[in-house]
Design a binder for these strands. Structure first.
Lengths: 161, 161
DNA sequence: TATAATGATTATACTTCATAACTAATATGT
DNA sequence: ACATATTAGTTATGAAGTATAATCATTATA
């Protein structure tokens, strides 16, 4: 019988992305996508996504927080936060308590179940990130934080503009 | 007169995000958002977005590329690539040439205008990234590439299943 | 006290990203 | 050769993320 042409798994076909790999932004975006997807998968069993976890974490660490302040802290729009908090509230993880001194506002409070799930999720995220960074030195991690901080806080981004 | 209660610009209200800042993923996402937005703004005057630029760059550096291979290389779905290429083609930056040996496929080719715009955009992106990373040492940049590579290629992400 | 501003919400639209289904062409199996 | 399956590209469509305008209740301001 003729030697079967092995082509089973659609071999990747060499495409040079040298033009893009010279940019840190390219690596940044791709790594971010991978990490985000991985993290979401890690806490999906707990019924959380990264954005939900982030909100829960902020409430747990800043009890009494207002929604507008949380939205600012997470850099998301207020309307989009509403549905996230609706989810957390419906599942009994946080409560929206009326603020006596300002009855327009809600003081966000974690429930006992919320605190518990927050601890579990934090452990899961930490464990997963530790695995992802297992082979990375402490120096390299520190370097990454320096660089990401520089990017985020716009070194030379908008001078006198 | 009473001392005017200065509250003009909605001062940020201290919210502790210490629970999240311990995770590299948090910094990664935020830095990525900032950098992406900045880069898009940098090449917007050329009528490009990062995804359009990336596609143009790949075509310019890999003339004759097929759409499916480009989609794989950019990690986007084929249907979503179509509209990107439609845009580039309508603007005369690339052409979809029929492949004689396989009349289903298109060989993507940059036009002269496409090459020229690619050069301009590359200069703009490079200049902008250089500014963003102005204060960052070469060692730190190398460290970032190591870490992002480790994340992207899943160190310990999915062993045996 | 009338007017403006704020906190939260609703409605909505736009963008991004993914899947299913379709057409045309090529590859495969008997 | 001919039926069947596969592939390249496209179309249609839906889900998720993100942003804006408008509204209601409440608080601040002139």
């Amino acid at each position: 019988m003729a030697k079967r042409q092995v082509r089973e798994e659609a071999e990747p076909v060499a495409v040079s992305d040298a033009a893009l790999t010279r940019f840190l932004g390219y690596h940044l975006k791709r790594a971010q996508t991978v990490l985000m997807g991985d993290m979401n998968a890690a806490i999906a069993p707990l019924g959380l996504r990264m954005i939900t976890y982030s909100a829960l974490a902020m409430v747990a660490e800043n009890p009494g927080l207002r929604q507008s302040h949380l939205a600012d802290a997470l850099s998301i729009e207020r309307p989009n936060l509403v549905v996230i908090l609706d989810d957390l509230e419906e599942r009994g993880l946080i409560s929206r308590d009326r603020v006596p001194t300002d009855r327009r506002a809600y003081a966000l409070m974690p429930t006992l179940a919320g605190r518990k799930l927050y601890e579990e999720a934090t452990a899961a995220v930490a464990a997963h990130e530790a695995r992802m960074l297992a082979g990375v030195s402490a120096e390299d991690r520190a370097a990454v934080l320096r660089v990401l901080g520089a990017i985020r806080h716009g070194k030379g981004g908008e001078e006198h503009g």
